[in-house]
Every structure is written in structure tokens, then in C-alpha cells.
């Protein structure tokens, strides 16, 4: 703690609201990036060196699952599938 930085209620409040504003801005931009991905062809890099492509459909609130269609797997195409976020390292698309 920095010496002499006595926190007054106003300072605390503005710190909290600064944090809330930052969190809201980051979250909104993230949610919008997900919406921009809907219907796009997305390349997924999964763990264990697995790569797949699919059309992105939707994701759930906690971003724990990606619903995709036309999933091209190393062993064929699956019309609809759920990818677990825990299996995914990254995803790439062109908006």
C-alpha cells in the first residue's frame, strides 16, 4: 500500500465505478465479438494438436460450450456439434 493514500468514500466509490465501467466495456466488446462470429466459418485449435473447422452458431452464457454446424473433423463431417471450451485453445475467423 502506498503511504498516505487514505481512502475516502468518494475515492472508493470512483474506484469501484471505474472498475465496473471497465468490466462492462470489456464484456460488451467480447459479447459483440461472439455475435459477429455467428454464421461464420471458424477454425478451432483444440488440445492435443487437433484442428477443426465449423460454422459458428451460438455459445452459452458461461461460454462453456460452442454450438457449431458442419463440423469438419479428422474423421468426417458432423452436422451439429457442441465443442467444449475446455477442449479449445483458440479460434480464428474473418468477420
Amino acid at each position: 500500500e502506498a503511504p498516505g493514500s487514505q481512502e475516502c468514500p468518494v475515492g472508493q466509490q470512483s474506484q469501484e465505478s471505474r472498475e465496473q465501467r471497465a468490466r462492462a466495456a470489456l464484456r460488451e466488446r467480447y459479447l459483440r465479438s461472439l455475435l459477429a462470429m455467428v454464421g461464420r466459418q471458424v477454425r478451432f485449435t483444440l488440445h492435443e494438436g487437433v484442428h477443426v473447422t465449423a460454422h459458428f452458431g451460438a455459445t452459452d452464457l458461461d461460454v462453456a460450450n460452442f454450438y457449431v454446424s458442419q463440423l469438419q473433423t479428422p474423421i468426417g463431417i458432423q452436422a451439429e456439434a457442441l465443442l467444449r471450451c475446455s477442449d479449445i485453445i483458440s479460434y480464428t475467423f474473418e468477420p
Binding site: 483444440l46 488440445h47 452458431g57 454450438y67 457442441l82
Partner: peptide
């Protein structure tokens, strides 16, 4: 976002791929 996900899943009943998680 959640409604869209629920709608897709209710309609299509997608299955997990891969069936067994790659990583826990």
C-alpha cells in the same frame, strides 16, 4: 446470447465432439 444457444440446442440436440473431453 443464451436464448440463441438454448434455441439451437432444443431444436438440433447437438452431441459433444469429441465425445470424451480432450482435456479436463
Amino acid at each position: 446470447v443464451q436464448l440463441s444457444f438454448d434455441k439451437h440446442c432444443d431444436r438440433k440436440h447437438p452431441k459433444y465432439w469429441p465425445v470424451i473431453p480432450l482435456k479436463f
